[in-house]
Each structure stands twice: as structure tokens, then as C-alpha cells.
């Protein structure tokens, strides 16, 4: 009797390997290289900006992104100014991806008639998969020239109207919907309006996005400035908005207390106060043109 039981157990164990094998996939017989490979994490943001901030994203290689941005007047101007819609400051800009990780750009703002040029280099790319890199790290640098002159001898000198920004952008696409980034920043101003203001202004920015649908995301960003660096009355930049992506275009609609759309401006020259209703409605329109010749020879 004892032996019989043992025998049944044995039969059961013996039949197990073949039973397991029957459920095995054919595909598992070949090494599936794809499932273990690290993949770059893409689409952390819909475009290269959060609102005003540079985002984790770069323009793709050989892609040109034309950006048209408007900030209307303050909402608290009331009905007489159609809540700010009667006036707008404008920035026209273009940026180009030299590689998938290095982009350059330039633009011109109507605000103080400023020219700006910049680069953004994605030094570390977030990757998924086993042992993947958890964050993306980008380095950003820009130079801006204010062509508008306040009538003094000092400002005749071009160098006295130059501004520089250096920024490290560290962020992560935490989930399919949620991305977060931090950007420690330094803005250097060759000349400040008063001697009490610092030439070097340090700040730390935080920005994020939450996808509410496949093509729409809610974005927010805030720049904290260390105390006693800028003129009294300068406020921290805070912006909230939506990205709406429609294929080749991204429409960014937002509310912000900053008038300027470039770093030296929205970081060190924001005067609007959200509490007082000094809020601009604004938009960025991004249109991407692809000049890559990828796959072209294969297809034709």
C-alpha cells in the first residue's frame, strides 16, 4: 500500500515536466533579445518647453521647430483692455536638432527687443529596462542681447546689454502620465540697473506635466530665487498650462505671471504677482519640420 502511494507520487512527478513544457511558448525557444534591451525613455514632455522652462525633451535630429509665442497683458486690466488681450508681447523662435541629443536655437522677443541664442545637450538619457538609467540630465546654456537701449552712455556698449544663463535640467518620466524635472539655474547679467542687485542670480526651478489624455497634458513650473539677489518687486515665476498636441503642432496655452519668454527675463525680471491678478494669458505654438533623410533611400 505504501509502495503504491509512492508509485502514484512518482508518476505525478514524472509527468510534470512534459505538462509544463506543453504550455511553453515556441518563442521562448529563441533568445528574445528585445525584452532585455534597455530602451531610451521618450516623450517625457510634448515639446521642448514646459511653459517657459526648457523641458527634458530635445528637438529630434535634423528637425526644425518653429516656435511662435505670445503673452497677452495682465488679466486684471479688466474689460477696457479685454482682460489683457488688447496687447501682446511676442517671441519668434526656431530651434534645430543637430543630433537627437544636441539642439541649438535662437529667437527674438518683442519684450525689450531681445535676441537670444542657446543650446541644450542631453548628456544622460533615461532608459527603461533592467538596470536602466532613472533620470535624464540636460545641460542648457544661453546668451541674450537686449537691443533696446535705455538712453545712457553705459548701455551704448553692447557687452553691457548681454545676459547669460546656465542650467542643469534633471528629470524623469516617472510614469506614462507623469514627468517631473528640477532645474538649478544661474543667470549672469553683465550690468544691473542698481548696484544692490547681484550680477549672478541663482535659482532652482521645478516643472512637471501630467497627461490628462493621450494628446493633452497639464503642465506647471515654478522658479524659486535665492533671497537678496534681484531688485525689490521681482517675483518668482509661476506658470500653469495645457499642452495640446495635434501631430506636427503642439499648442501650449497657459497662465503665467512672467512677461518674458527667455531665461534671463522670466527668471530675473518677473514682476507679476498671482495674488493681485497680474496674470498673463499666453500661448506657444510649436510646428516641427522634419529634414532628416532617414529611410529615404530604402523607400525609394
Amino acid at each position: 500500500m505504501k509502495y503504491r502511494l509512492l508509485f502514484y507520487c512518482f508518476i505525478l512527478v514524472a509527468s510534470m515536466p512534459s505538462a509544463l513544457r506543453a504550455q511553453e511558448d515556441l518563442l521562448s525557444m529563441i533568445r528574445d533579445s528585445a525584452s532585455t534591451e534597455k530602451q531610451p525613455v521618450k516623450s517625457s514632455f510634448k515639446t521642448t518647453r514646459v511653459v517657459n522652462f526648457q523641458s527634458l525633451e530635445n528637438t529630434h535630429a535634423r528637425n526644425l521647430d518653429i516656435k511662435i509665442s505670445h503673452r497677452f497683458g495682465f488679466l486684471n486690466l479688466g474689460i477696457e483692455e479685454l482682460f489683457g488681450l488688447d496687447a501682446a508681447t511676442i517671441r519668434l523662435g526656431a530651434e534645430y536638432g543637430i543630433t537627437d541629443r544636441l539642439m541649438v536655437g535662437f529667437g527674438r522677443s518683442s519684450f525689450e527687443k531681445t535676441l537670444d541664442t542657446y543650446f541644450k545637450w542631453k548628456t544622460i538619457q533615461q532608459t527603461s529596462g533592467k538596470g536602466g538609467m532613472p533620470v535624464t540630465v540636460s545641460l542648457f546654456g544661453s546668451a541674450a542681447l537686449r537691443t533696446f537701449r535705455v538712453n545712457t552712455d553705459l548701455e551704448d556698449k553692447l557687452l553691457n546689454r548681454m545676459y547669460y544663463t546656465g542650467q542643469v535640467i534633471v528629470g524623469s518620466k516617472i510614469s506614462e502620465e507623469f514627468s517631473l524635472q528640477l532645474s538649478p539655474t544661474i543667470v549672469h547679467r553683465n550690468l544691473t540697473a542698481t548696484t544692490s542687485e547681484k550680477n549672478d542670480v541663482f535659482g532652482i526651478g521645478a516643472g512637471g506635466r501630467f497627461k490628462v489624455s493621450k494628446r493633452i497634458s497639464l503642465n506647471a513650473e515654478y522658479m524659486y530665487l535665492l533671497p537678496d539677489q534681484v531688485a525689490p518687486g521681482i517675483t518668482n515665476s509661476l506658470s500653469i498650462g495645457f499642452d495640446i498636441e495635434t501631430g506636427g503642432h503642439v499648442f501650449q496655452l497657459h497662465l503665467t505671471n512672467s512677461t518674458a519668454m527667455i531665461e534671463k527675463g522670466f527668471i530675473t525680471e518677473t514682476t507679476g504677482d498671482w495674488g493681485d491678478g497680474d496674470i498673463h494669458f499666453g500661448f506657444n505654438i510649436s510646428r516641427v519640420f522634419d529634414f532628416s533623410r532617414k529611410n529615404k533611400t530604402k523607400a525609394e
Partner: peptide, 13 residues
């Protein structure tokens, strides 16, 4: 894809 953005949208959207 020929266009990088198209490839991104193919995957994402």
C-alpha cells in the same frame, strides 16, 4: 519612420 515625430506619436498616441 521617416519622421522622428511620427515615430514618437505612433508609439505614444
Amino acid at each position: 519612420f521617416k519622421k522622428a515625430l511620427m515615430q514618437e506619436h505612433f508609439n505614444e498616441n
